[in-house]
Design a protein around this nucleic acid. Structure first.
Lengths: 271, 271
DNA sequence: CGGGCGCATTGATCTGGGTCAAATTTGGCC
DNA sequence: GGCCAAATTTGACCCAGATCAATGCGCCCG
């Protein structure tokens, strides 16, 4: 059971904001408390084995042998960041690369006048530092509690040079990112506000599904402002569009996320 | 000498469209006839040596040894495309990867209702197929005459597996593309029409500069529609913005391109 | 329990860029 | 050079989403 905010109960009035219990039993999944991914610090940093890492199978380290994993482990510095902490800032000298093991990281670029573009949200298993030159190309900070494996750039470079199949894996990650970036260009350049929101929600659903069981409940730990800056919209437009989708029962807004009530319609719009 | 269209000669009237000769002598460069990059088919496809290829030094093949180059040459199929020809189509089965040796290729994605997003323009030296899975993620067609080195996917895969430093080079290309994609997201999501145009022109200037001498004359072989679809604008807005920039003497519109008359102002806007 | 702060929502109004509709220009071709 | 088709420019008007301005609401902390 989790707490949810309930949908419209008046004709043109605002939402009823009374709280009700919502039964999840009809879904093929356990409840996700407050729609946040479960932290796995203990596993990622505990008795320390990369072999036990929760993101092992979806991350860059998946194809490594036991032996290589041990080497990797000796180079990795498990690190924790609190909500809002900066992992690194755009244009700062790039000392480290990171593998996210739990939590969500906001990746963004700023213009001198303060306009912001969020270029991505890194989820557990994602790798930060692919597009790295001497300086970071964007800033990264923690949305909620985040744990990462940090690698010094020197160690990373040496490792990549020594292990071609790790390089191949990184290249796969980079090309996958590039494909997503092209999708995002289509979205930013040519889609309407409603389409942007719907594509975003479906995309997040898919990404979370890789990390746990598929679910129609999509955690959204980032703020409306983050979503707006990711989609090239304003916070007001994001909010209004969410409200509209909720009123027509396409989605249900719950604390920390949304539930997709009509995935068919959403997929039709995204097509 | 080349022919140019001349700037405004009345207060609020349209441009004078009489033609005049324009002397390029004051620039540190030879003239670029009609602002088109010189075709190099003969060199790229002629007596056949990759070693003589005009794009060798800026392309993926730069770090290869003589011996490796010979192997590469045996796998490459030099191919010519005429203006408007399709190199490959989005969602088609990916059989080949390509290295552009001359000309310009338009890369784009389509939505089912016909909306188009140009995700990039491939120039000589650019590699197509980085983000390739079983199917192409975007369409590619020739803007003007184009020559490429085509490689079968099987040959490409085998070569990459056998040559880690080629993989490393490809990875560099992929991460560079990713950085550019992030820039483009910023542009599409948060910049105004004028900023978009100016960033585009400066970006093209830089890219051409890598291939020949730096020049304030920027060839634009693509149509206004292509530019609009790259920048997330309409053709009318692109045209109006070009006109406005020309009226205030920031640029000069010449056949097949523009000359940047006030790079300082442009760089200030792009910052 | 209450006060304050930050996020989110909602309403009213404005506007940059889109849409629609003509010209006008350019380039290819006989 | 003249003709046609395609590309581009220009003008008039419109609208999706931005901007400006209040609330609303949860949550933390004393």
């Amino acid at each position: 059971m989790i707490w949810v905010k309930f949908g419209p109960c008046g004709e043109k009035g605002a939402f009823c904001v009374s709280r009700h219990k919502l039964d999840f039993a009809h879904e093929q999944e356990g409840p996700i408390v407050n729609c946040q991914p479960a932290p796995c610090n203990a596993v990622a940093q505990g008795d320390g084995a990369c072999g036990n890492c929760m993101v092992r199978l979806v991350s860059v380290c998946a194809p490594l042998s036991e032996e290589e994993l041990a080497l990797l482990e000796s180079l990795a510095t498990p690190t924790h960041f609190s909500s809002g902490d900066t992992l690194f800032a755009q244009a700062a000298e790039a000392h480290c690369v990171y593998n996210v093991t739990s939590g969500v990281v906001r990746l963004y670029k700023l213009l001198s006048d303060g306009r912001r573009q969020v270029v991505g949200f890194a989820l557990p298993g994602d790798f930060l530092g692919l597009a790295m030159r001497d300086a970071y190309g964007f800033s990264a900070d923690a949305i909620g509690e985040v744990t990462v494996c940090a690698f010094s750039r020197a160690a990373y470079t040496a490792l990549v040079d020594a292990k071609p199949h790790l390089l191949k894996r990184l290249h796969e990650f980079a090309t996958h990112e590039l494909t997503l970036a092209h999708e995002q260009m289509m979205l930013l350049g040519r889609r309407t506000a409603e389409e942007k929101l719907i594509c975003f929600l479906l995309g997040m659903q898919q990404r979370w599904a890789r990390l746990s069981k598929p679910s129609v409940t999509v955690p959204l730990p980032m703020t409306r402002q983050d979503i707006a800056d990711f989609l090239g919209l304003t916070i007001e437009t994001v909010s209004r569009t969410f409200t509209r989708l909720a009123k027509e029962n396409t989605i249900l807004i719950v604390p920390g996320g949304v539930r997709l009530m009509n995935p068919d319609r959403m997929n039709a719009v995204a097509a």
